[in-house]
Simulated assay, not measured.
Amino acid sequence: MITVPLATLGGMDTDRFNTTTLNEAENRFQAAMLDNDVSALDAFLHDEVRFTGPDGSTIDKAADLAVHRSRTLLLSEIDELGREVQVIGGIGVTRVTLRVVGTLAGDKIEATMAYTRTWIPADNGWVIAAAHGSLVAP
Score class of each variant (00 low, 15 high):
residue 32 A to R: 04
residue 20 T to Y: 11
residue 56 G to S: 06
residue 82 G to Q: 10
residue 30 Q to Y: 06
residue 3 T to H: 14
residue 137 A to F: 12
residue 99 R to T: 07
residue 41 L to T: 09
residue 87 V to S: 06
residue 47 D to N: 13
residue 68 H to I: 03
residue 76 S to M: 06
residue 97 T to P: 03
residue 54 P to L: 10
residue 5 P to K: 07
residue 44 F to N: 01
residue 69 R to L: 10
residue 94 T to Y: 06
residue 70 S to A: 15
residue 114 A to W: 01
residue 110 E to R: 11
residue 68 H to K: 07
residue 130 A to W: 02
residue 84 E to F: 09
residue 96 V to H: 01
residue 101 V to Q: 09
residue 77 E to N: 13
residue 91 I to S: 03
residue 127 V to K: 03
residue 53 G to V: 03
residue 4 V to Y: 12
residue 83 R to G: 02
residue 132 H to T: 11
residue 81 L to T: 06
residue 86 Q to F: 12
residue 81 L to A: 02
residue 136 V to C: 06
residue 37 D to L: 07
residue 12 M to F: 12
residue 111 A to N: 15
residue 7 A to P: 00
residue 92 G to L: 07
residue 52 T to H: 00
residue 128 I to T: 07
residue 81 L to N: 09
residue 19 T to M: 14
residue 35 D to Q: 15
residue 96 V to G: 06
residue 72 T to R: 14
residue 136 V to Y: 03
residue 60 D to H: 03
residue 101 V to R: 14
residue 39 S to Q: 10
residue 129 A to M: 15
residue 61 K to A: 09
residue 116 T to E: 04
residue 134 S to H: 05
residue 136 V to D: 03
residue 134 S to L: 10
residue 17 F to V: 08
residue 59 I to S: 09
residue 51 F to Y: 13
residue 133 G to E: 05
residue 40 A to K: 14
residue 36 N to S: 15
residue 135 L to D: 00
residue 44 F to Y: 14
residue 53 G to W: 09
residue 131 A to W: 02
residue 59 I to H: 02
residue 130 A to I: 00
residue 117 R to L: 13
residue 51 F to W: 13
residue 104 L to M: 11
residue 102 G to L: 08
residue 101 V to M: 04
residue 13 D to H: 10
residue 137 A to D: 10
residue 95 R to G: 02
residue 69 R to W: 03
residue 33 M to K: 13
residue 94 T to E: 07
residue 71 R to C: 07
residue 135 L to V: 09
residue 78 I to G: 05
residue 56 G to Y: 01
residue 32 A to T: 04
residue 15 D to Q: 14
residue 80 E to D: 03
residue 116 T to F: 04
residue 72 T to W: 04
residue 32 A to L: 06
residue 4 V to C: 09
residue 83 R to Q: 13
residue 33 M to T: 07
residue 112 T to M: 06
residue 94 T to G: 05
residue 40 A to W: 00
residue 95 R to P: 01
residue 89 G to C: 10
residue 53 G to D: 04
residue 78 I to L: 15
residue 19 T to H: 07
residue 77 E to Y: 07
residue 113 M to C: 04
residue 50 R to K: 12
